[in-house]
Write a protein that binds this DNA or RNA. Structure first.
Lengths: 207, 207
DNA sequence: ACTGTAGTACTACAGATGGAGTGGTGTCAA
DNA sequence: TTGACACCACTCCATCTGTAGTACTACAGT
């Protein structure tokens, strides 16, 4: 088992590309070698098994997907209002969709996790950490919305990204933007009303 | 190219199982033969190519996923209020998650659509039809909520199902139920307020 | 009842690809 | 010199596609 860390990272990153392009079943030692531009057999020396490749790729994707310095800064510095939150979510979708191969690889890994308990454990831990991080980030910032808002946004935006990456013709760019805005808008708990026009008690479907 | 329609259907259904279990790359003529319990070579006689297999499977899944007589009836007959809608959505999530292999196969196909234009065209058409059907069903029924509500529910619930099927330990059954309820609750446009307590102008994050 | 024919089920094979794993050799630096 | 790694080569193995060829079944015409 070789140690060289740069090489190892390069190989894992190559594995992500292969995953996105060829699918989980296409992730082989040889394919990684080719993608990374190293001699055949190299990946064999760096990973104990294919399982190992999968789990390392799973870990690495979150490493690359999670942190995002400039956005984090904006999240911390910006105003804590709905408009800023919308802007942030819009950036989030754009940013993740931009790392197309990473997200597609992640989907492949999720499906592969169906078959590989070890991978499932790794992904479960990462996803849980991701969600928890979102929750506590949101809690610490003073953005509007509660924990439920965060979870609902998580759900809706994830599928929105799936839709964009796999069947881009379903929603236009405009529709995507509108959906992000609507998701933020409605994910927030009902806000107290602006002062009602007049004595009209405003019926409508009460909760 | 053989014609026997029962056999063809059986083969396509077998293909769906294979997709869910082995992934897109594992969908081969031989694997379909084995899954369907027919002699080797049979699938070769029924499908012009692997592409053909994929597109036929894509069509068939929606055939099996879409219609659902009892639920449709409930949607039409039930009361048109939020509680009924919630119940309906809960059933929807349960029902789709129950056809586990079908939904997983669909995800595999979405990823494969990334590589096969023909398959992408088929899926795009089906998904669009699905969304349109949801929109118009909702419009015709007199359920609360607007088109945006339907789309947001579509997004959130889809990912919720993905989460359940691929990493079931992330959300407990209870959390899933709560998330479905919250999704319905908040997907609906903000309702007019109940009469405010007193002259307090209700500040909070204005839009 | 006989037979020809068409459609289909089943079998077998040719040809080819691609991958896992491993051992061996070259190279460089401590 | 020794150890760690890069690189290369080779063997063994599993699988797939596409197609050709054979066997079965049903039916129609006579």
């Amino acid at each position: 088992m070789r140690k060289n860390p740069e090489r190892r990272t390069a190989l894992v990153d190559a594995a992500i590309e292969v995953l996105a392009r060829e699918g989980a079943r296409g992730l082989t030692f040889r394919a990684v070698d080719v993608e990374a531009g190293v001699p055949a057999g190299t990946a064999s020396n760096y990973f104990a098994s294919r399982d190992d490749l999968f789990t390392q790729a799973g870990g690495r994707i979150y490493e690359r997907l999670q942190p995002d310095a400039p956005t984090m800064a904006k999240a911390a510095d910006g105003a804590y209002d709905r408009a800023t939150l919308t802007e942030l979510m819009y950036e989030l979708v754009g940013r993740i969709a931009a790392f197309r191969t990473g997200y597609l690889a992640l989907l492949e890994l999720r499906l592969e996790a169906t078959r590989r308990p070890e991978l499932r454990a790794v992904l479960t831990e990462r996803v849980r950490a991701d969600i928890d991080a979102n929750l506590s980030n949101h809690g610490e910032s003073r953005m509007p919305g509660d924990a439920t808002s965060v979870l609902l946004l998580y759900l809706a935006l994830n599928w929105l990204i799936v839709e964009q990456l796999t069947l881009p013709e379903i929603f236009t760019e405009r529709e995507v933007r509108d959906l992000v805005a609507a998701a933020v808008e409605r994910a927030l708990p009902a806000t107290p009303c602006p002062p009602a026009p007049a004595g009209v008690p405003a019926p409508g479907p009460g909760r």
